[in-house]
């Protein structure tokens, strides 16, 4: 039969924790920071930021292309009166941007992943 009672077991445990408070704190801090990093990376992935992040490794060419066309567009002011001049100004700006958007590039066309393109429909 052991001489050490449950109470003295508790006492030893408490004493051990107290004796290693600093070490315990370091472990706890590391665990909390790992958890927070995990949450941050999960948000980075699930929010869609990762998919738009061209600074990822392997996207150097895409990054270079993106920098080329990085001009500042002021846009149309939300303040002021509406008259013929302001409507003409908007018309010019809108037509310019709409022409860029409506340019006939085959963005995200299904053909890129088709069996034919990947050579899976023939030997």
């Amino acid at each position: 039969m052991s001489d050490i009672s449950p109470q003295s077991h508790d006492m030893i445990g408490v004493r051990t924790v107290r004796a290693h408070q600093f070490f315990g704190m370091i472990v706890l801090v590391v665990l909390i920071s790992l958890f927070l990093v995990y949450v941050a990376l999960s948000l980075y992935q699930s929010s869609g930021t990762m998919q738009l992040d061209l600074s990822r490794p392997g996207y150097a060419s895409a990054r270079q292309e993106a920098i080329k066309g990085n001009e500042v567009f002021k846009g149309f002011s939300a303040d002021g009166t509406i008259d013929k001049a302001s409507l003409n100004e908007f018309d010019t700006l809108y037509k310019q941007k709409a022409a860029e958007a409506l340019i006939d590039i085959d963005a995200f066309s299904g053909a890129a992943l088709s069996d034919g393109t990947l050579g899976l429909d023939r030997d």
Partner: peptide, 16 residues
Amino acid sequence: QTDAFLRNDRGNLYRT
């Protein structure tokens, strides 16, 4: 890679 660039380019334009 091309899609990532295209998505950024089109997305910026659409937001603008």
